[in-house]
């Protein structure tokens, strides 16, 4: 058994007297995809942001095991170290591409930015690497000099993924990556994510309100309601035999659609 790459330990987040997350704990192992599901306002995006070090928790810890096997508390890191990790070993795919891409820079520059921040100084090599990643997310390499604004919605999400994966991160946070896309585009994107995660042994924390997406991608599910984890287990188990009344409600509403 490998050691977990991410551990949430009783993570709490309060806004005034309202709890956005309450005592959330889990372990995530390399190559594993954990789905966080629940309706909007259930606290799943807040939890994601706490885990990614973008929000400070009111209590508890988020522990990341870095590539040297050292356990790092995401909220004890210096700002410099946190930002370095976020552009090397970690990745964050936003729901809206405009939050995760530079819309005024070309696709090549978007993918190359992490490399350049890491000290790459050979234009030809940066460009070749960017082109290769563009193809890995199934975008033709001749679109390398186009800006994301000239891309379709599905392509923008692929580009965001390529921009994150170019430094071979070990842990990826994804917030509703298929939100707002057509069903057929969604299916292809999900396929790609599953393939890449598998191939790169990526650990992924995936936030989604869509149980179908969660079933396709994640091995494990955590169902959240009002900031609490009401049920957690293997995806098939949770979806086929939901124990908590709220999970039952969610599942039945999915089946009706």
């Amino acid at each position: 058994m490998t050691l977990p790459v991410l551990s949430a330990v009783e993570v709490d987040k309060w806004y005034g007297r309202r709890a956005a997350c309450r005592k959330i704990s889990f372990d995530l192992h390399p190559g594993e995809i954990l789905g966080l599901v629940g309706e909007s306002g259930s606290g799943k995006t807040t939890l994601l942001n706490v885990l990614a070090g973008r929000l400070t928790p009111s209590g508890g810890r988020a522990l990341y095991r870095d590539e040297n096997g050292e356990e790092r508390d995401m909220h004890q890191l210096s700002e410099a170290e946190r930002r370095r990790l976020l552009r090397t070993e970690l990745g964050l795919v936003h729901q809206h591409p405009r939050d995760g891409l530079r819309l005024r820079a070309s696709a090549g520059a978007n993918i190359g930015e992490r490399l350049m921040a890491g000290g790459w100084r050979h234009y030809g090599q940066i460009r070749a690497e960017a082109a290769q990643w563009l193809e890995r997310v199934e975008i033709p390499a001749d679109r390398l000099d186009d800006r994301p604004t000239e891309y379709s919605g599905g392509m923008r999400q692929r580009l965001q993924i390529a921009r994150n994966l170019v430094t071979r991160p070990r842990l990826l946070f994804m917030d509703e990556p298929t939100g707002g896309l057509d069903v057929s585009v969604q299916a292809k994107l999900l396929d790609l994510i599953r393939h890449l995660a598998n191939h790169l042994r990526l650990a992924v924390v995936l936030v989604t309100h869509d149980l179908a997406v969660a079933r396709l991608l994640s091995q494990r599910l955590m169902v959240m309601k009002d900031g609490e984890s009401v049920e957690c287990g293997l995806t098939d188990q949770v979806l086929d035999d939901p124990q908590h009344p709220y999970t039952q409600l969610l599942v039945s509403s999915m089946l009706q659609v």
Binding site: E79, A80, R83, R84, R87, R102, A105, S106, G108, A109, G112, E113, R114, M116, A117, G118, R121, Y123, I126, R127, L144, D145
Partner: peptide
Amino acid sequence: HALKEYGLMYVKLYEDISR
């Protein structure tokens, strides 16, 4: 500057060359 995080500066130079 404090973090010597200059990826952004090189994005600009990269864009110049590709354009």
